[in-house]
Amino acid sequence: MNWKSFILGAAVGIIGGYAAHEVLNNKLKVSPEKVLEQVKKQFKQNGPISGSWIHMEAEPYEKHQIHYKVYKGGISKNNNGSNEQFEFIADAQTGTLLDVRPLSDALIS
């Protein structure tokens, strides 16, 4: 057996495996833009949205002793002349909303 061929084959296999791992990892995450689009769609069912934002980096989050990578963001709505703001937390893997919290007026000022 030729050692050069063996080493070349092993190197190609390792590089190919690493590349496949990276591609699969990136495909399993939902983009932050897509998450924001889904959240806005849910909020629009109850009236128009006046603003929205999302943090582009996934960060660790724990809820009920379960660990997630999440995107955090916010939605602003105009409800009968008053501005309502909400913070949301969505799973980076699936885009599923994990938590929605209204922001109080004291935090906004």
Results as ranks from 00 to 15, higher is better:
residue 75 I to N: 01
residue 104 S to M: 02
residue 51 G to S: 14
residue 77 K to Q: 10
residue 88 F to P: 01
residue 24 L to I: 13
residue 101 R to E: 02
residue 76 S to C: 04
residue 40 K to Q: 13
residue 93 Q to C: 00
residue 2 N to Y: 06
residue 52 S to H: 03
residue 63 K to H: 11
residue 102 P to C: 01
residue 51 G to W: 05
residue 103 L to G: 00
residue 97 L to V: 06
residue 3 W to E: 05
residue 37 E to C: 03
residue 27 K to R: 09
residue 63 K to W: 07
residue 91 D to G: 05
residue 54 I to R: 01
residue 55 H to K: 09
residue 27 K to N: 12
residue 72 K to A: 08
residue 94 T to S: 13
residue 29 K to E: 09
residue 103 L to W: 00
residue 17 G to N: 10
residue 89 I to N: 04
residue 72 K to Q: 12
residue 85 Q to L: 03
residue 66 I to A: 10
residue 26 N to S: 15
residue 36 L to P: 06
residue 63 K to R: 14
residue 58 A to C: 04
residue 64 H to V: 12
residue 65 Q to F: 06
residue 18 Y to T: 14
residue 109 S to H: 12
residue 109 S to I: 03
residue 24 L to S: 13
residue 105 D to S: 10
residue 104 S to E: 04
residue 99 D to C: 00
residue 84 E to C: 01
residue 72 K to N: 11
residue 35 V to E: 05
residue 45 Q to V: 09
residue 57 E to K: 12
residue 24 L to D: 09
residue 79 N to E: 14
residue 64 H to C: 08
residue 81 G to D: 01
residue 54 I to M: 05
residue 70 V to H: 05
residue 91 D to A: 07
residue 104 S to V: 00
residue 30 V to S: 12
residue 50 S to P: 03
residue 84 E to K: 04
residue 20 A to I: 15
residue 29 K to M: 10
residue 106 A to F: 06
residue 10 A to Y: 07
residue 37 E to N: 09
residue 70 V to M: 07
residue 89 I to V: 15
residue 20 A to N: 14
